[in-house]
Design a protein around this nucleic acid. Structure first.
Lengths: 143, 143
DNA sequence: CCTGCTATTGCGAGTCATTTTCAACACCAG
DNA sequence: CTGGTGTTGAAAATGACTCGCAATAGCAGG
């Protein structure tokens, strides 16, 4: 079952309706992570008619349905990004030198979940990790 | 050297002045983490005269001097919190059931730093970790 | 102890991302 | 086809945070 089918089902199951706007938003976010503003710009540039408010609302609905998860890519948390669950294990490193955002894979949230469950009985449902520092290129410049 | 002395020195060294407002803000944040709004409320309640803008500005100055670090306690990142460097290894778990914020200690940022350095040559200088889920009490209720 | 230079303050206004309000609209079950 | 109600767009609201500017107050030198 594709992401789009899952999303349609989830929306209908909760008594919601599949509108033109929701469809194009879902199609766009199925492939990659987006923040509301960029997604809106992209759709508008492609000639689609949606309002920014609807983009925010739809992303929020999809998050509530468990299909997306919010993230903040950089430690200064300036913009909320939505990530399809299929890419959940990707986190991001922000370079303080050049501003580059470097994705990396790790199951560190999983390990942390185990630790918290074992040590304190906490049940982790979602986590967010932001790290910043210097990338290879910027380390060389400093040296 | 106490946190307050460190802060005074840092401010003076950079050509800044120790004002009454800065002193009371520094004294207040020396002991624990605060977000600007709460710190302002606390000081005002204690009869001190400071403006919210000054609280924000002072926290930012202290962060620039390397005495505080910003954090977001919960995954929804609704409020910026400043933490004295001495308590840096404390992270937070937010319960989606009762809203409780539970601190925990872990060197997970350290481990992640090692992984990133070894695997991709990235040099991590700071990190932020937010996890949410259900605490022991709220897990029982769900059951 | 004065004095003046200028860093800092307070206040109100300004940002910016995100949310809400509300009337008009459009899914979709019947 | 049609009505009930979930959704939308546009604009106003919100909330955290920042900025402009005139008034104030540290503090170095006299």
């Amino acid at each position: 079952m594709t992401f789009i089918e899952q999303a349609s089902d989830a929306i209908r199951d909760s008594g919601g309706r599949m509108t033109r706007q929701r469809r194009i938003i879902i199609e766009q976010i199925a492939g990659a992570q987006w923040d509301a503003e960029s997604l809106y710009a992209e759709l508008t540039a492609a000639g689609e008619e949606v309002s920014l408010a609807t983009v925010y609302r739809t992303l929020s609905v999809l998050e509530g349905a468990g299909l997306l998860q919010q993230r903040y890519l950089s430690p200064d948390h300036e913009r909320r990004v939505y990530v399809p669950l299929t890419t959940l294990q990707t986190h991001h490193f922000t370079c303080k030198g050049c501003g580059k955002v470097i994705p990396f894979e790790t199951d560190i949230v999983g390990r942390l979940s185990s630790e918290l469950a074992a040590g304190m009985g906490l049940q982790v449902t979602s986590g967010c990790i932001c790290v910043e520092g210097y990338c290879v290129d910027c380390q060389e410049e400093t040296t």
